[in-house]
Design a protein around this nucleic acid. Structure first.
Length: 632
RNA sequence: GCCCCCAUCGUCUAGGGGACCAGGACAUCACCCUUUCAAGGUGAAGACGGGGGUUCGAAUCCCCCUGGGGGUACCA
């Protein structure tokens, strides 16, 4: 029994219904063996595993294993037995017992975290398939992302993809991309390209998918229409679904009326009891219609979520949703179930927002007699202020100016974020590598990732932390590598970006940029023909125009006479000059910096001069001196 | 409105009945280093939403409230 069941204490009827439903489901699970398409290897299922940490029975087992480490489990021990046929645990009536159960669950979970290696050799209880009790990746895990091509890739999609990828890699399984393009009205033509580009950029490209191939294709739902049809027909034939001929107008009217009357369900099930033959006849005559799921009028549906335990829904509150649209395309609810089943998906790791629709899908699994996948609903990514799903909307920047929150992967890429930094950042949203380490590699993440460790609470996007992380990754790059990555950003800024020049500039900027796009603005003066510092800035406090001009002239002479043009020599010469004139370094170098860079904030002076070259340096010093001299 | 999810510093998180007057990271502030700006170093400030239970003991388990979020389509 899952955690949440206890919350239903007040409603024994509902609870009983939940039990009945679960028994139903179990009967299905036992009876109906997974029918697999030829060519799709039977995947060992892991769902007991994932559920064990939350299920009381499983937790009990684990706790047993913990306490009597090394002792073998009773051969007959079966998680399903524990969670299933048994009467409702005392927790339903008795708070103290419930408390006890909670503790057991926690213990189980903690045990799962720590005791893995120790438990490696322990034989598994019958019927319990544990992920990696042997330390070996369990083969056959198949996960997927199922985005719809209605826009460019969102960072939330990227995060979901990342967690799926991580899990697949860690389990030695397959990561599948299935494109849910069943809404023909919202298609964006290059959305799929953008998605693939984003996934590749992040280094989490799918193993199977459109344009990639695989045994479970096609991976575009629009190419699977013929596949869905018989399943829809089967549901209708078996009385699990019905044809609905209601017009959009009627539906709208009904929904409004019912909503204002406080009814829970928007559709009045007008066509639900139409005789099937009549429906078939009208359909055959070409009358436009949809196919709706005949949702049970009462009962409970239980979603077993890896992160949240059991979530019980009252099915009476769920509408007879449309399964097949008038245009013959399946809706999400229908296609997702058929495809996940046909594609052998073992674990569904998807966003939180799908929880409310889960009972519909559960119902479909039950109707078809198919084994459910393991469910894990991942927390949403929220706006930086925590106010709602991350979306493109106006916020106020640090400078008080209106700013648009970036939400697209391509935007972050264009803004000069490194894919490895983005990967790291995304992984840290809702999951932590450890209590202390913020920066970790892909390999490390793969090694440690566990779905159960994902936090169930939503996480706000933290732009400052992303910037910092990106800076960390930039500083960690080999200079040649950084130069190469910088090239397109310099080009975009209109600065001729030959690699040798960039390579020379890298040391000036590497510790000073947070994004690749920051770079050109830091050193663009090196590309300029001349710079024009503000005269009043050129003269430091404590000096006047004449003495500043004198200083610049001296610098010009000193540097012009320098034997070697490198920063060490420049350093020595300029320091000597400052000392000679009785000036502190900070005072003496600032006018030179202004003369050279045209501004007071710039990369370190000597290295900059070295890159600028002697001729340009002398010319700029002379120009600044001339301007000072022209002062009244 | 109804249904569902969630709840530790501003943010991301560690924590899973005693090891916690709660640890780390970003951001903030101060100091050090320093030719400016960074980077780096050191330090400071900063949280268990509230109320009830359970318990010898609660950030941790339970309930309620509050708050936040999601869903409520012939969208996904």
């Amino acid at each position: 029994m899952g955690a949440r069941l206890r919350e239903r204490d007040a409603d024994p009827g509902r609870l009983a219904a939940a039990d009945v439903h679960r028994q139903h489901l179990r009967a299905h699970l036992r009876g109906a063996r997974l029918r697999r398409r030829p060519g799709v290897p039977a995947a060992p299922r892991l769902h007991r595993v994932a559920r064990v940490p939350r299920g009381v029975g499983g937790a009990g087992l684990r706790r047993l294993a913990d306490r009597d480490r090394g002792r073998h489990l009773p051969p007959g021990a079966d998680v399903r037995q524990h969670r299933g046929g048994a009467p409702a645990p005392p927790g339903h009536r008795d708070l103290a017992a419930a408390d006890q159960l909670r503790r057991v669950e926690r213990a189980g979970r903690a045990d799962g975290d720590r005791a893995r290696p120790e438990r490696a050799g322990a034989p598994q209880a019958a019927g319990v398939r544990v992920t990696t009790g042997t330390g070996m990746p369990a083969a056959g895990v198949r996960v997927r992302i199922a985005p719809s091509p209605t826009g460019y890739m969102h960072v939330g999609t990227a995060r979901t993809a990342l967690f799926n990828w991580l899990f697949a890699r860690q389990q030695g399984g397959a990561f599948v991309l299935r494109v849910e393009d069943t809404d023909r009205t919202r298609l964006v033509p290059d959305a799929i390209d953008d998605l693939m580009a984003g996934l590749r950029w992040l280094g989490i490209a799918p193993d199977e998918g459109p344009g990639i191939g695989g045994d479970a294709g096609p991976y575009l739902q629009s190419e699977r229409l013929a596949i869905y049809r018989p399943y829809a027909e089967r549901l209708v034939a078996e009385g699990h679904a019905y044809r609905c001929f209601c017009s959009a107008d009627r539906l709208r009217g009904v929904r409004e009326a019912r909503q204002s009357a406080g009814q829970k369900i928007g559709y009045d099930r007008h066509c639900r009891d139409l005789p099937p033959e009549a429906g078939a006849r009208r359909a055959a005559a070409g009358e436009p219609h949809v196919v709706r799921l005949k949702m049970p009028l009462a009962g409970a549906a239980t979603l077993h979520d890896v992160l949240r335990g059991a979530i019980v829904f009252d099915v009476a509150e769920i509408e007879d949703v449309v399964l097949v649209k008038t245009d013959g395309f399946p809706t999400y609810h229908f296609a997702v179930v058929v495809d996940d089943h046909l594609m052998g998906i073992t674990h569904v790791l998807r966003a939180d927002e799908w929880i409310p629709s889960a009972p519909i899908q559960l119902q479909l699994y039950a109707c078809f007699g198919w084994d459910e996948p393991v469910w894990a609903h991942l927390p949403l990514v929220l706006n930086p202020d925590g106010g709602g799903k991350m979306s493109k909307r106006k916020t106020v920047g640090p400078d008080g100016r209106p700013l648009e929150q970036m939400t697209l992967v391509r935007e972050y890429r264009a803004a000069g974020y490194l894919p490895e930094a983005m990967f790291n950042f995304l992984a840290r949203l809702g999951w932590s590598y450890s209590g202390a380490e913020e920066v970790f590699s892909r390999a490390q993440a793969i090694e440690r990732f566990r779905v159960e460790d994902v936090k169930p609470s939503p996480a706000a996007w933290n732009p400052e932390k992303l910037d910092w992380l990106n800076g960390v990754y930039i500083r960690g790059l080999e200079p040649d590598d950084l130069a190469a990555r910088l090239a397109p950003f310099f080009e975009r800024a209109g600065l001729a970006a030959d690699l040798a020049r960039l390579r020379a500039v890298v040391p000036l900027i590497q510790p000073r940029i947070e994004t690749l796009a920051d770079a050109p603005g830091l050193v663009d003066f090196l590309w300029a023909d001349a710079v024009a510092p503000a005269l009043e800035e050129l003269v430091p406090k404590g000096l006047d125009a004449a003495s500043t001009a004198g200083l610049l002239a001296a610098a010009e002479a000193t540097l012009g006479a320098l034997a070697a043009w490198d920063h060490a020599a420049i350093d020595a010469a300029l320091r000597a000059l400052a000392a000679e004139r009785g000036l502190k370094a900070g005072v003496a170098f600032q006018p030179i910096r202004l003369a050279i860079a045209g501004r007071s904030v710039a990369p370190p002076l000597f290295e900059t001069l070295e890159v600028l070259g002697r001729d340009a340096t002398l010319a700029r010093l002379a120009a600044a001196r001339a301007r000072l001299a022209a002062q009244p």
